[in-house]
Amino acid sequence: MEFQDAKLETRGYSLYYGGFQALRDIDIQIPENRITAVIGPSGCGKSTFLRTFNRMNDLISGVAVEGGVYIEDQDVFQMDPVELRHYVGMVFQRPNPFPKSVFDNVAYGPRAHGERDRAKLAEAVERSLRAAVLWDEVKDGLTKSALELSGGQQQRLCIARALAVEPDVILMDEPASALDPVATLKIEELIQELKKSYTIVIVTHNMQQAARVSDYTAFLMMDEEDRAGYLVEYGPTDRIFTNPEHEITERYITGRFG
């Protein structure tokens, strides 16, 4: 898959944990304002791959990388990670609101980036909560602890918190896997809505979810010998799910392993 103006790109990207190679030679281009799903069996390096784009892997000692990772043709490894994460937000597998009020959770990012003006903060909080379709549920309880919200609400709060920083890209690491079906549906609808303004990369375990929400799908698999993750195939979601090029992709998406 080649795009004229890819938002994110990796070229010959490999990642090592000490002596173990977790990702091998991945070339991918991720288009702007689309939802790209990353699927693959447990342990194939999906999350590690996702965390490449905001350099969260830097937090783990002993990680080494090869190859290039680019956001709008800028090498992310040349950027300050704090600045990079301003453009590339992230939503985690388990809702992880801070033990602070709803307002303070959403205002955390803008405040960290230096915003002190109360009116501007209040505006950013409302805009982000509306965008995350949570505003109507929490507008009367902005000072309540975020931990009082339900799991699904907490995850939408985490999305609002990421949006408040005004990123270009949002990385989602199995954002609905800890939620019940109703909350999952809400998150999926929200993701669809968000792609109008954001480039979204979502890691998921759930084939149906990938098929439902994404425009493009990348299938990662681990090497049988050394268990390094590699990109099997990448393309429009419709094609991957109806007419995959590789037999192994078909076996995976039809649930015969993984």
Binding site: G89, R94, A112, R161
Partner: peptide, 15 residues
């Protein structure tokens, strides 16, 4: 303090 809180903060671009 859970690691997830630290990750959330760093992922938001906090130092």
């Amino acid at each position: 303090v859970p690691r997830s809180h630290r990750e959330a903060s760093l992922a938001l671009g906090a130092t």
